[in-house]
Design a protein around this nucleic acid. Structure first.
Lengths: 129, 129
DNA sequence: TGTATATTTGCAACAAAATTGCATTAAGCA
DNA sequence: TGCTTAATGCAATTTTGTTGCAAATATACA
C-alpha cells in the first residue's frame, strides 16, 4: 500500500492552512511557502492532502479552485456543507453549519456535493460597498 | 447605456444552446460554431449572455466551467436550482426541479447560488460502469 | 545507527484555458 | 444612406494545471 510521507513542504502547507481562516488557492499557498519548494510540488501536495481527506477542494462561482482544511471530527466521505464566496474580497469561507437539504431524483447516484453561496461576507457588508 | 447587438456569431451560439440538452463548455461551443468566428469572440459572447442573464455559468466539481441557457419563464436574479455533473460522461445537466433549502447566517448577503451534485447520471448508471 | 526502498521533489517542457490591446468590421438607429 | 459604437479578428501574453525523469529524502527495518 502506498503510504504518505511527512515532508517539510507538506508540513509547511499544513501550517499555512492552520493559520488561514479562509480557503486558499494553489497560487496563494505557493506564495505563502516563500520559495520553499517548486510550484509543481505544491500541486502534488494538495493532491495528496485532498486524497487523504485532510483538505477539501472548493470551486468558487467563478471557477476558481481553492482548498481548505477539513474540520470534521471524524472522516467523512461527502463534504456536505456550504461555502461562501465573497464577490468583493474574493475570500471563500466554510459555512460548516449550513447544510443543504434537497430531494434527489431517484435515478441519479450522488457521490459528492458542492454547495456554494456567493454575495457579500459580513466584513464587506459592513463596509457598505 | 450600453446596448447589446444581435450579431451572427451571437445568434449561432444561441442556436447551439437551443439544440443542446446539457451544459456546454467554451471549447465545445467553439467547435460547434465550426470556424464561424474566433475563439476569443466566443468567450466574449458568453460573457455578454451571462451578463444579460440569458445564459448561466455552471462550475463543475472539478472546476470545469460550462454554460447553459436559462429556461425561466420570467427573468430571475438568482438561479436557485441544482446541477448534476456526471463523473463518467462528464455531462452537466440542469435539475430544474431540485431546489435546495438552507438557512443562511443573517450576516451574509447572498446574491447567487451554486448547487452542484456529482456522481453518475441515469445513462451511465444503467450502463453499470 | 546505518541501509534499503519507495515516495517526493525539482526541473524543464508542454498543454489548455482565459485575457488584453488595438485596428477593423458591422449592427442598428436617425 | 451615413454615423456611432458595439463586436470581431488577430496576435501576443498570462494563468493554470500536467507529465516524465533523474535526484533527493523520509521511513521502516536490520
Amino acid at each position: 500500500m502506498k503510504t504518505t510521507r511527512n515532508t517539510t513542504a507538506k508540513t509547511a502547507v499544513l501550517e499555512i492552512f492552520g493559520k488561514s481562516k479562509t480557503a486558499l488557492s494553489h497560487t496563494e499557498i505557493y506564495k505563502l511557502t516563500a520559495d520553499l519548494c517548486d510550484r509543481v510540488t505544491v500541486y502534488r501536495i494538495l493532491d495528496r492532502l485532498v486524497n487523504d481527506d485532510i483538505v477539501h477542494k472548493i470551486v468558487g462561482l467563478d471557477g476558481t479552485v481553492k482548498y481548505a482544511k477539513c474540520h470534521h471530527a471524524h472522516p467523512v466521505t461527502i463534504h456536505n456543507h456550504a461555502h461562501f464566496s465573497c464577490e468583493n474580497c474574493l475570500e471563500i469561507t466554510c459555512l460548516e453549519s449550513v447544510k443543504p437539504s434537497y430531494i434527489i431524483p431517484h435515478n441519479y447516484k450522488v457521490n459528492d456535493i458542492n454547495f456554494t453561496l456567493s454575495g457579500l461576507c459580513p466584513n464587506c457588508l459592513n463596509s457598505n460597498i
